[in-house]
Design a protein around this nucleic acid. Structure first.
Length: 420
DNA sequence: TGACGTCAAGATCCG
DNA sequence: CGGATCTTGACGTCA
């Protein structure tokens, strides 16, 4: 079983993706951004290796305008070495990668040019996985598409278009239930026709359930039948509804309790779970640490990333957690205890007093070596934030700049600077 | 015609 | 002028 995350790695230096708009998409710009993004992907893989994350979705934005005619770059040739380097890391970390064209890639469209674009997009996604030397178990996930007033006809159209695809793409393509149109039961029906494996998405399913009511784990069992040995382990998507947001909005973080009960209800543990969540890698590492019952020692690094963020939310919880690490507490179930408190702190409303405490604490680390200008700016920003006419982000930005100039490693990597 | 989703780039504003 | 904040882009469907 692997838990994974999609596209972006939060809180890691040099892991950000770049892009450009169509107007600026010259061949030179495209190749430059491509190289930058492959470098970033390599950094993400380093992170995945280090945290033992074995499931990862590569962003469709990895190649700018990857399936657009404006991109005439033979990136798979020009960046061979970079791809090879990333491939080695994927192998080293035993990572299963995938890709997922978005809601705008519609294979069953009524418009021929939309279909052509969709096919081009699938070719592009396959080409990325091909350039990385990945086998058939590294999948491309697609939704069925539009309904156009007649669901059965739309499903047939999808099947017909699927059949026309090149073999290599068919071997990678898997299909997923969506939140508006095609329920899990309908996607299974399509799968019967075309033979593509089915991905169960729990949140889409909750919003857009089929008439036949069965527990999630039974639908998952049903989906498993669509996976054969060359497809690799069955994959599912897991996400949680964000409170007080439109149906289908992904939560800021995965609350581990609900995740655990979902996990324990699964009949089949030989399964890969892709989390879809705002905080990406952070929730993936959390769920993994909890499933593996990580001990105090193993969570020290996690704590050093979270500590200033938690301090900025709740000095109380900060102290409670910090004590446990100082004393190297060997309590049973340490990981759930730890993350429960992290979740609690992150759920609290913004507390400007705590924010000031954390800022002062970070400034203490800079103070000895600060310039006059840095100090004045810090004092001004802190003062105006505490007087409610300055923003927290400008204060944090200034601190982040100071911290980076000095290469204060623990602070450079602190989630304090990456989450609000 | 605009909402949907994504998130960095681009544009504009501010001191 | 640098930095902060708001808006745009690129895709297709559907109300």
């Amino acid at each position: 079983m692997a838990v994974g995350y999609a596209c972006l790695t939060i809180g890691v230096k040099d892991a950000a993706l770049s892009r450009c708009i169509l107007k600026n998409a010259t061949q030179d710009t495209i190749i430059e951004i491509t190289k930058q993004n492959l470098d970033a992907l390599e950094v993400m893989m380093d992170y995945n290796i280090h945290h033992n994350i074995q499931l990862f979705r590569i962003s469709s934005d990895i190649i700018p305008f990857g399936s657009h005619p404006v991109n005439q770059v033979e990136w798979w040739n020009q960046c061979k070495d970079l791809f090879e380097c990333i491939r080695k890391k994927i192998i080293q970390g035993n990572i299963r990668v995938s890709m997922h064209p978005g809601q705008y890639t519609v294979l069953n469209s009524l418009q021929q040019n939309v279909i052509e674009n969709a096919v081009r997009d699938l070719v592009y996604h396959d080409k990325v996985l091909e350039a990385l030397g990945m086998d058939q178990s590294c999948k491309i996930i697609l939704h069925i598409g539009g309904v156009y007033g007649d669901k059965n006809k739309a499903m047939d159209t999808f099947a017909r278009q699927y059949e026309k695809l090149p073999r290599t793409i068919k071997d990678r393509l898997i299909i997923e239930n969506d939140d508006k149109n095609f329920t899990i039961s309908e996607v299974l029906e399509v799968s019967k026709k075309i033979g593509a494996p089915v991905v169960f998405d729990n949140l889409h399913h909750a919003i857009n359930p089929p008439e036949e009511q069965r527990p999630d784990c039974e639908w998952i069992k049903e989906c498993k039948k669509t996976w054969n040995s060359t497809d690799g382990k069955q994959k599912i998507h897991y996400s949680q509804q964000k409170e007080n947001a439109p149906a289908g909005s992904h939560s800021d973080m995965i609350f581990y309790n609900d995740f655990l009960s979902f996990y324990h209800r699964l009949n089949e543990k030989e399964i890969d779970i892709m989390l879809e969540v705002k905080d990406k890698n952070l929730s993936a590492v959390k769920c993994k640490n909890i499933l593996e019952n990580a001990r105090v020692e193993e969570l020290k690094e996690e704590w050093s990333r979270y500590k200033y963020l938690i301090l900025s939310r709740s000095p109380n919880l900060y102290t409670v957690i910090n004590e446990a690490f100082v004393k190297s507490e060997s309590r049973e179930e340490f990981a759930p205890w730890f993350y429960e408190r992290i979740e609690q702190a992150l759920e609290l409303p913004v507390n400007s007093k705590a924010q000031v405490t954390a800022a002062e604490c970070i400034w203490d680390r800079i103070y000895d070596s600060c310039t006059e200008t840095e100090r004045k700016r810090y004092e001004k920003l802190l003062y105006s934030y505490s007087k409610e006419n300055g923003t927290l982000s400008s204060l944090k930005n200034h601190l982040f700049k100071c911290v980076n100039l000095r290469n204060l490693q623990e602070l450079v990597d602190s989630l304090y600077f990456y989450l609000n």
